[in-house]
């Protein structure tokens, strides 16, 4: 199972539709960093609207991808986190460091303008 990467202008959209396993995470990070460095996109949008559960592992993966992107000169915006997931993350004491968040794709595109 591969997560598709979609290029929109100078931005890269990654839509994660289901909880993914470790091996997929490794290849996803590689794919994203490769794409950023070869095409020089300035913004990375990670769409989590299809995600029902965010555990600490998944949260760390998002942070790591944001970190990778920043080192390569791209800003990351995470969109589409469901309200109950936001509350759960806060209660767990998890933070999304190094990434910006926004409600939806439109707002993310504005942030990255």
């Amino acid at each position: 199972m591969k997560v598709p990467l979609i290029k929109i202008g100078d931005k890269l959209l990654v839509s994660i539709q289901t909880t993914i396993i470790d091996s997929v995470v490794a290849s996803l990070r590689e794919d994203i960093t490769n794409e950023i460095s070869t095409s020089g996109v300035k913004g990375l949008i990670i769409d989590l609207s299809g995600i029902d559960i965010i555990d600490s592992f998944f949260c760390r993966m998002i942070n790591d991808i944001g970190h990778d992107a920043r080192i390569l000169g791209a800003k990351t915006v995470v969109v589409g986190i469901k309200p109950e997931l936001a509350i759960t993350l806060v209660q767990m004491g998890m933070e999304m460091r190094g990434v910006m968040t926004s409600l939806n794709l439109n707002k993310a595109l504005e942030i990255l303008k």
Binding site: T19, D52, I53, I54, E84, L85, T88, Q91, M92
Partner: peptide
């Protein structure tokens, strides 16, 4: 409720991982 379902599923995700 929906929120507690999410908390329970998240807990199980952490435990199983």
């Amino acid at each position: 409720n929906g929120l507690d379902q999410t908390k329970i599923a998240t807990t199980v995700a952490e435990l199983t991982r």
